[in-house]
Design a protein around this nucleic acid. Structure first.
Lengths: 218, 218
DNA sequence: TTAAATTTGTTAAAATTTTCACTATTCGAG
DNA sequence: CTCGAATAGTGAAAATTTTAACAAATTTAA
């Protein structure tokens, strides 16, 4: 029997670099740059050229030897890998300062992410209008039609409770801003961002920095 | 200060996990938990016990064999490593939705980070009061007294310009929310957070995810 | 006091990720 | 057309990070 070739596992670090490449490519496209070499690309985003080429190699061959990469073509390809050529609807739970800022964050929309619904646990916030969206009571979440992406921007103490509700409502991917770890069933993907953690890591390097080599980026 | 094994280079991933440990320890301390084993710790924050012990081992010996770690002691030690036992002042540039949210973000203060000054490029925002802080014109930044931490929350197109100003004003660590790479002189530390990137990475895993353990097909 | 049960700190192995080094391809000049 | 310069893709080496395994230390129970 012929075994299906096992698909190579793609390094997580590779995945996290793709949006960086994508963003940079969009930027240079605005300046009418049509082609870019791995060297140039690498220099501009602060990595090694071989890493850029290796990263792409997990997904196919997108360049032309001797020439480089077509910016337009590469945008299309990386966009395809990240599924950015579709519209992605998301719900947000928690419309405090951070949640409200996220709802008004213009760059989400540019990449096809749209926060189409907002909920809060605090009934005093229900009914408030943010942009085109009216804040709803979180208890309505399970009855609303299913949306695949959820953003949690509530206090840490409610993180797990909200996560449970989202999962029960069919959400398959969660972006967690609470700083608390949340447990989800297999098949649900979570990514966590904690702004305080980032500041703490920055602070560590600030106080332990040895001025040789280059500084930590990204 | 840490004298032991100062020579060894500490993995960046280790540093980024310290705030997670710290946060979790603070949480359980509130619940009056006095001791914790590496096993328990690991289970709760979603890593392997050996990784937790290894991470700590770069900085010294903080546990008691047979017993585990004193929560209080560990908080003090990790806090010391991250320099969280001091007050850290920061300035922010850009008081749009995100910048304003960051200024009101309560968790910064809990970890000793205080945004003591706010600037904007948009003169129409100058003079506005956010919390206890009044927004100043960015041109005043170089004349103000030096603050070591800077947060950039302006549109990507102004990122480098603002970074230059911050560096010229003596800022040594920058938390960059613009999504654009910024170049800084040696000795200045940068960490970048891009909320859209996180959503894109989440989206990738959402569309390519195969539940771990048994291979459920999709 | 001794033995069993825990659990740390650490060494070494395994796994992952980055970097190097080289081949092959393409373009453009002569 | 041929040559030289530029550059992609890739297998292997190097570097980094994670995981496993175990000796040593400590507590608890008898």
């Amino acid at each position: 029997m012929i075994l299906k070739k096992k698909k190579d596992k793609i390094p997580e670090r590779t995945i996290t670099r793709l949006p960086i490449y994508y963003n940079f490519l969009l930027e240079i496209q605005k300046n009418d740059i049509r082609m870019i070499s791995s060297q140039e690309m690498a220099r501009k985003v602060g990595i090694k050229a071989s890493q850029f080429r290796k990263d792409l190699s997990y997904f196919g061959e997108f360049g032309t030897q001797g020439l480089g990469y077509s910016v337009e073509h590469l945008i299309e390809k990386i966009g395809g890998i990240l599924h950015l050529n579709y519209r992605h609807n998301a719900v947000i739970v928690g419309v405090g300062n951070l949640g409200t800022a996220l709802m008004n964050y213009p760059h989400f929309g540019e990449w096809g992410f749209h926060i189409v619904r907002a909920y809060d646990l605090d009934t005093s916030k229900v009914g408030r209008k943010i942009g085109y969206t009216t804040v709803k009571d979180i208890r309505e979440l399970p009855r609303d039609i299913m949306i695949p992406l959820g953003i949690i921007a509530v206090p840490p103490s409610s993180a797990q409770e909200v996560a449970n509700l989202l999962v029960a409502s069919g959400v398959r991917g969660i972006l967690n801003f609470t700083g608390s770890r949340i447990e989800v069933p297999n098949g649900v993907v979570v990514r966590s961002v904690d702004l305080t953690y980032e500041l703490a890591v920055l602070n560590y390097y600030l106080s332990h920095f040895v001025p040789s080599g280059d500084s930590k980026k990204r």
